[in-house]
Nucleic acid binder design. Structure first.
Length: 557
RNA sequence: GGGCACGUAGCUCAGUCCGGAGAGAGCGUUUGGCUUCUAACCAAACGGUCGUGGGUUCGAAUCCCACCGUGCCCGCCA
């Protein structure tokens, strides 16, 4: 009897049965759109071996077979465990894309950390991923920046906070903005004329003007990259806005927009009257210059031409702009289903917003320095009571401090839903206790510790027999290992890397329970072999999961 | 005023898309556990009007409506 005669058993109830108890099933939905979920069996074991079934109240529970567990052990023994089959689909993930006006600060740090994790997840889920940083090197802010750099004398500026190009140059940017705020009308007008000239030069594709602006853009970008590389976050390509002004594609977009029925010419400016939007979208100023969105349209058509999908990580303040962009792209005949935006809420300070212009931001470099420093202190304070006799060297301490310090920052950010507001507080961001990166990293170090002690780790391919692993803790760990591929798929489908973070936490809990209850090295031969294989599978799984989050997996701590 | 987010334990958050088993973690508080593979660990206790009010449903933190609170946006800036 599968169902209690009178028990409520809706379709949803059946779905629950599939999803919660049976690790080999996954909920598969068509990408992005809510379609009725169906159960799908994943491994060959689950298709070919009968399962046991039990009834608990109104629920029917399916239990995996032993062969399924054997397969999990074998699969998780492979280095690439959790990597899904190629989807034969390319996707460009654009993230960070911060204006090159100053050092990367914590308010924006959510973007590269989330973006990098999304790219990692998509890559692991079988997509052919490219990581892009879209460089705004053409707008009014950059013209202003170039003007300020050429106008003000270094002697009038305060010492830079660090000796690196981004910290050096941001002083000119701040000075320029401050000047415009305080200047008399005449002074402002004169300055605006010069800024306007730069803007016009860029618009005309003038090489000399491009070079003038590039004087600040290039070194600024180098400096900012240095910060991001510490995370570490890197890019396949820095795509410049000016590229689309130079190759004529933006001009072509303007012409096509002008030809649409939604185009209106009002107050000397070309605008788009988009359905569903109250405000018209200006795409050509009255002085004939383009706007950010105009150039971004060309940028996105370029993405569509070169990739199957495009994902953009954006601050929530760009929500409206992103929606209008999508609408305009649609108007131009693009398939906007290819485009996904992931919006995140800015990180604020207890006292308010961070601003590059006003100089009120906490620099990412400072956060990372502080985090590594706190991690170092933590390690040193633990050296006394350390049981393991592996004599950490000074280099080890430094390595662990870096792995833990950077990991803690990334985990704190990537583990939360992007839409939730975050207020930055040092102590909270750099808490090394449970539900943090070190908690998970520690599990990896423990697996390495055990495997190092074992003179030889049994080969995993096919010889493992999971039936020796019958304690609740062993089973629970095996279950959570088996779930990893489904977690990868779900994180990729939802563009939600925080589900991987949630998974790592749960994984660590299961492993630690196993660690407490099940001695490995001192166990009887058969049990010892099986547990060693289990630990090896756990190490691979947690290392790969941390890798998706961009967090190092230390071999010792 | 309009649009988009967010509101779950004292605090920080999962769970919400796709409704189902007395709503889960961590921090903090209280208590217990290192001669035993690393105690950045584990076990236990305490802690909840899931913002409020309606509705749909056998069943709602989850779906719908209204309201309240908070954030963001509504520029020929990005």
């Amino acid at each position: 009897m599968l169902y209690e005669p009178n028990s409520p058993m809706s379709a949803a109830g059946k779905r629950r049965v599939c999803s919660s108890r049976f690790a080999t099933t996954s909920l598969r939905r068509s990408r992005r759109r809510s379609q009725r979920s169906t159960c799908r069996l994943r491994t060959s074991a689950s298709r070919t071996h009968p399962r046991t079934v039990s009834v608990a109240g109104p629920y029917v529970n399916f239990h995996p077979t032993e062969a399924y567990y054997d397969d999990t052990l074998a699969a998780a023994g492979e280095d690439g465990y959790g990597r899904l089959d190629s989807k034969e689909e390319s996707v460009v993930v654009e993230h960070t894309s911060a204006n090159p006006t100053g050092p990367v600060h914590v308010g924006r740090a959510r973007n590269p950390i989330i973006g990098d994790a999304i790219a990692n997840v998509l890559d692991f889920a079988g997509y052919d991923v490219s990581r892009h940083y879209y460089v705004n090197d053409a707008g009014r802010q950059m013209a202003l920046f170039a003007w300020a750099y050429e106008t003000f004398d270094e002697a009038d500026l305060s010492e830079p906070e660090r000796s690196r190009a981004d910290y050096d140059l941001v002083r000119y940017y701040r000075k320029g903005n401050a000047f415009l705020e305080e200047a008399s009308d005449d002074e402002r007008e004169a300055a605006e004329d010069e800024i306007q000239a730069i803007l016009q030069g860029l618009e005309a594709g003038d090489e000399a003007t491009f070079e003038r602006v590039n004087e600040v853009v290039e070194p600024m970008l180098d400096g900012m990259s240095s910060s991001l590389e510490r995370l570490p976050v890197t890019y396949d390509e820095f795509v410049r806005e000016t590229r689309f002004m130079g190759d004529g594609s933006m001009d072509e977009i303007v012409e096509r927009l002008q030809d649409t029925e939604n185009a209106v010419y009002e107050e000397d400016a070309w605008q788009l009257d988009l359905p569903d939007f109250e405000k018209k979208l200006v795409f050509l100023r009255s002085d004939g210059t383009s706007l950010y969105t105009t150039r971004d349209l060309a940028h996105h058509e370029w993405k569509f031409a070169n990739f199957d999908r495009a994902v953009t990580v954006l601050g929530e303040e760009h929500g409206l702009q992103a929606a209008q962009l999508r609408s305009a792209l649609d108007l131009l005949g693009n398939d906007t289903d290819q485009l996904d935006s992931v919006l995140y809420s800015h990180v604020n300070l207890p006292e308010g917003k961070m601003s590059t212009r006003a100089g009120t931001a906490v620099d990412l470099d400072d956060l990372l320095d502080e985090s590594i420093q706190r991690a170092r202190e933590e390690i040193e304070s633990r050296l006394e009571s350390r049981i393991r006799d592996d004599d950490l060297t000074g280099d080890d301490v430094e390595r662990i401090a870096r792995q833990v310090g950077l990991g803690a920052v990334r985990y704190d950010i990537v583990s939360k839903q992007p839409t939730k507001a975050i207020t930055f507080e040092w102590d909270r961001a750099l808490d090394f206790e449970a539900q943090s990166a070190p908690y998970v990293q520690y599990v990896h170090a423990r697996t390495c510790g055990i495997l190092d002690e074992a003179s030889e780790v049994p080969a995993l391919d096919g010889v493992m027999d999971a039936s020796t692993l019958m304690t609740p803790e062993e089973r629970a760990l095996l279950d959570v290992i088996a779930r990893f591929p489904a977690v990868v798929e779900s994180a990729a489908d939802e563009l939600a890397p925080h589900v991987v973070a949630t998974y790592t936490r749960e994984f660590a809990e299961r492993f630690n329970a196993f660690y407490r209850e099940c001695p490995v090295l001192d166990a009887e031969s058969e049990t010892r072999e099986a547990r060693l294989a289990l630990v090896a599978a756990a190490r691979t799984t947690v290392a790969n999961a941390l890798g998706l989050l961009g967090i190092a997996a230390p071999e010792s701590m």
